[in-house]
Amino acid sequence: MTTVEVHSPTKAKRATQPSGGANKSKRGPEQSKPAAAPAGRPDVPARSTKQNRILSLLNQRYGATIPEMMLATDWQQHSVRGFLAGTVKKKLGLDLTSSKSDGELRRYRIAPRRGR
């Protein structure tokens, strides 16, 4: 049987820690603020996630190919395909269509919603 010993900090270490705990974070004031949108472009989101990158590619007029989505996200092919099936189609419930012309790669796009 193995025994494990647990040591607590010594009194000297406890005394050197800052008291009050007002600012326990080691981040500076410039790091604690969320990123702002680039100047002159209020329509651009402050933070671009990989999901947002793929969705913007899929919303383009001609959509996107798997290699284009892989480049935008640094994901492997199976991860992009899983995202399309699991997140885009099932979780978000978007109508994902694909098309393929002779000699070209398959292009995926989100079909625009019809109706009201």
Rank of each mutant, 00 (worst) to 15 (best):
Q31A: 07
E5M: 06
I66C: 04
G40F: 07
A64V: 06
G115C: 09
R41T: 05
K50A: 05
K91C: 00
G20T: 11
R106Q: 10
L71G: 06
I54F: 03
R27Q: 08
Y62E: 08
Q76A: 11
R109L: 08
R53L: 10
H78Y: 12
E104D: 09
P42W: 13
R61P: 01
P67D: 03
L94G: 02
V88Q: 02
Y108I: 01
Y108A: 01
A72N: 07
D102P: 02
L92Y: 12
K90F: 02
Q76T: 07
P38H: 13
V6I: 15
I54V: 15
D43R: 14
H78G: 03
R114I: 05
I54E: 01
Y62Q: 12
S8V: 10
R53A: 15
V80A: 01
E68M: 12
I110M: 08
V80P: 01
M1P: 04
A35G: 01
Q31L: 08
K11M: 04
P67K: 10
M69Y: 03
Q76G: 09
H78N: 11
M1D: 07
T97F: 07
R14L: 14
L105P: 02
Q76R: 15
N52G: 07
T97C: 05
K100I: 01
R41N: 09
R27E: 02
L105R: 15
L71E: 09
A39V: 11
A72S: 12
Q51H: 09
T87L: 01
Q76K: 15
N23L: 11
V80R: 00
N59R: 15
P38W: 08
K11C: 00
T49G: 03
P38C: 02
I66R: 03
R53H: 07
T73H: 04
R14M: 10
D74Q: 13
Y108Q: 01
A111Y: 09
H78V: 08
M70I: 13
R47H: 08
G115M: 12
E104M: 12
R41K: 14
L105V: 03
R53G: 02
G82W: 03
K100G: 00
G103I: 10
E30I: 11
K90T: 07
T3N: 06
G86D: 13
P67R: 10
D74Y: 11
T73R: 03
E5T: 14
A15H: 12
V88M: 04
A35N: 06
V44E: 12
A12N: 13
P9S: 11
T10S: 14
S79P: 00
A64C: 08
S8Q: 13
T87F: 06
P42K: 15
A46S: 14
A12R: 15
S56V: 12
L58C: 05
A15I: 09
A64R: 00
L96D: 01
S19K: 15
K33D: 00
R47T: 07
G20I: 09
G82E: 05
T49N: 06
S98M: 09
F83Q: 03
R116L: 11
K33A: 03
G82Q: 12
Q51A: 10
P112K: 15
L71I: 04
A72H: 08
A85T: 13
R27N: 02
L92A: 10
G93N: 12
P18Q: 11
H78Q: 13
A72I: 05
R14F: 06
Q17S: 05
N23S: 10
T73P: 00
R47V: 11
T97H: 13
R47C: 01
D43M: 08
